[in-house]
């Protein structure tokens, strides 16, 4: 069993010989986890995850562990072994722009493939969608959202806003109570993922011990390294049919190093904003040029000057207003 389980991690896949019990066409009473894994359609999702998301190694490993647990649980069920209904509620903590929402989307797909949620859709909400404005408004609002999320994944962004200790008449508490009740009683109907900054989520969990105990998986998203950010930027450009010229790439690496040291740095999101501004400058540069028609190359290449014009190089934050952490 151990060998087959190992085979779920991709690097071990080529090395680990199939365990005797796991050979195709195994005797009844044996179970082939590997075949299960293939049949569930999970390999594609994990491949996609590896290709689309840069870095985040600990998180990808954690996802594989969860998938392995769910697959083993399913195999155990087939033999009539006791299976505790797994608690799949999760909390994603990390700085802005580290890929929490993107991963939540993937999580919904993974849980759907494994059969732990029936539809695999993701409903993203914040405090506004859950908490009402007057007495008696909160419960229907929260229930409405839960109804919408049934059969899928409910993603509560910046969940710590739900609890506002400084205002004792805040309706957030009511919403929390309903959520807790549903998280406990309708575990097979929906999976709740809470997300937010690490320190504030910690305080939120301290104030609401009920949440902490009902959330099984606490996943921390690390900040990206500089090379990872550069790769993210290049992928984003690629998706939009742009590319960086060699000089621009060097300048952009420099930009990232500078930008990281400045306040309000939001990882992937800051990169995206920087590239959006570079595209803007590229467009106006092309527009002002008057030496004949443009080639496809002109339209797709972002030059060093497009990035060098950024205020980051002048020593002031690139954008004072647009990039408050969110």
């Amino acid at each position: 069993m151990a060998a087959t389980l190992m085979a779920i991690s991709p690097d071990a896949a080529d090395v680990a010989p199939a365990a005797p019990g796991a050979a195709p066409g195994a005797a009844p009473g044996a179970v082939d986890l590997r075949a299960d894994f293939e049949a569930s359609g999970l390999p594609e999702i994990f491949d996609q995850l590896d290709q689309e998301m840069v870095g985040l190694a600990p998180i990808k490993r954690r996802l594989r562990e969860i998938a392995a647990l769910l697959l083993v649980d399913r195999a155990r069920q087939r033999f009539g072994l006791a299976v505790g209904a797994p608690t799949l509620h999760m909390s994603f903590t990390g700085n802005p722009g580290t890929g929490k929402t993107t991963l939540a989307l993937k999580m919904a797909a993974i849980l759907h493939r494994l059969g732990y949620v029936r539809r695999g859709h993701l409903v993203t909400v914040t405090r506004d969608d859950l908490v009402g404005q007057y007495i008696g408004h909160t419960a229907p609002k929260t229930k409405e959202v839960l109804k919408r999320a049934a059969g899928g994944v409910l993603f509560i962004d910046e969940a710590y806003y739900l609890y506002r200790p400084e205002n004792e008449r805040d309706y957030g508490q009511e919403s929390i109570e309903i959520l807790l009740q549903v998280m406990e009683n309708q575990r097979d109907d929906l999976v709740v993922i809470l997300a937010g900054y690490a320190d504030r989520m910690d305080r939120f969990f301290q104030a609401n011990p009920g949440f902490r105990s009902r959330v099984a998986h606490h996943i921390d998203f690390p900040d990206y390294g500089e090379e990872e950010l550069l790769e993210i930027g290049e992928r984003q450009l690629e998706a939009m049919n742009y590319r960086l010229s060699p000089q621009a790439k060097a300048v952009f690496a420099q930009y990232i190093a500078l930008r990281r040291g400045q306040p309000h740095f939001a990882n992937g999101r800051s990169i995206r904003n920087a590239l959006d501004r570079a595209r803007l400058r590229q467009a106006s540069r092309l527009f002002q040029r008057d030496d004949g028609p443009l080639s496809v190359d002109d339209l797709t290449v972002i030059e060093a000057e497009d990035i060098l014009a950024s205020r980051v190089f002048a020593g002031t934050p690139d954008s004072q207003v647009g990039e408050a952490p969110s």
Binding site: R118, R119, H121, K143, L146, K147, R148, A150, G151, G152, Q186, D189, L190
Partner: peptide, 14 residues
């Protein structure tokens, strides 16, 4: 009317 529900569980709760 429940327009935006994806799963019957929500309707059954109602």
């Amino acid at each position: 009317p429940m327009f935006d529900i994806r799963d019957a569980a929500g309707v059954m709760g109602e």
